[in-house]
């Protein structure tokens, strides 16, 4: 990879200041960024590590909300949300492998918005709020397409707030090489209704399957989605499966999540 300067600020303020420089990039675990840099597909001149900032590392359960600091690892989330939000803990516990979960962070995953990442499904499926150094962004407004988010240049994810649902379930069907989701669905049941977020499937990145949400909000059973059709126009088609296959999996995974919760 190209060389760069690694800086390790200890406060959000210092990190944001360091990121003002051109070609500076935040680094919050690097489990995706680092291999990308090895392939020379990314070449920041300055990497600003967020991992040494204590105020970004926390899991707090407050009432019906779970607050997670941006630099909190998947392993920590898996461990510390087990009781308060088991659906989220279970998703975190299945990201990558144990070594990845010890390094990768929630902020890094959301900011990267890989179309096959797990966390975006939890954030969108929970209607989470993403906090940054300068504002709060609703998950519905945060994900703007494959590898694209509402984050501005130099803006960092400082935390995520998840409203705790009555129940939630993440059904993941893996791509056998990368072990990322080929298609995975996060279903969360709230008083206000059901949310269904799909990752791995679409060229547009994580998305909400609104038809299913409406149907499930009326009747929470796998039968409710049986006759729905998933549009495969924007679905990813590759070596591992066609768009039609991913559309089909979206439905199957949704039904399975619902069945498991029913």
């Amino acid at each position: 990879m190209h060389n760069f300067e690694l800086v390790k600020p200890t406060s959000i303020e210092d990190a944001v200041a360091a990121l003002k420089e051109e070609e500076a990039q935040p680094y919050s675990g690097g489990q995706t960024l680092l291999p990308t840099m090895k392939a020379r597909l990314a070449a920041p001149t300055k990497l600003v590590s967020l991992l040494g900032i204590d105020e970004l590392r926390y899991v707090r359960i407050e009432g019906d909300q779970v607050h997670v600091g941006g630099a909190t690892t998947h392993a920590t989330v898996a461990r510390e949300t087990k009781e308060a939000y088991p659906g989220l803990a279970s998703l975190a516990a299945r990201i990558g492998d144990p070594a990845v979960r010890n390094r990768g962070t929630i902020g890094g995953s959301l900011a990267n918005n890989d179309p096959s990442a797990c966390y975006p499904a939890a954030a969108l499926g929970s209607g989470a709020t993403i906090k940054t150094d300068r504002r709060e962004i609703a998950a519905d407004d945060f994900f703007e397409g494959m590898f694209m988010t509402a984050l501005e240049e130099g803006e960092i994810v400082t935390g995520v707030t998840f409203p705790i649902p009555q129940a939630a379930r993440y059904e993941k069907f893996i791509q056998p090489a990368s072990r990322f989701p080929l298609t995975a669905v996060f279903v969360a049941k709230y008083d206000a209704g059901v949310r269904v977020a799909v990752t791995g499937a679409s060229e547009l990145g994580v998305f909400r399957w609104t038809e299913a949400e409406e149907a499930l909000s009326k009747t929470f059973s796998a039968d409710a989605v049986k006759d729905l059709k998933v549009d495969d126009a924007d679905m990813i088609s590759d070596l591992h499966g066609s768009g039609a296959y991913r559309a089909h999996l979206t439905k199957v995974m949704t039904a399975r999540a619902v069945t498991a919760l029913s």
């Binding site: 791509q175 056998p176 090489a177 990368s178 070596l239 591992h240």
Partner: peptide, 24 residues
């Protein structure tokens, strides 16, 4: 039998060029 496949596209680009796409 189940997962490994070294695939090229019509232009001769190697599609399964790493463990991201070649399933071990």
């Amino acid at each position: 039998a189940m997962m490994e496949n070294c695939a090229y596209d019509a232009e001769g680009q190697l599609i399964s060029a790493s463990y991201m796409d070649y399933a071990m």
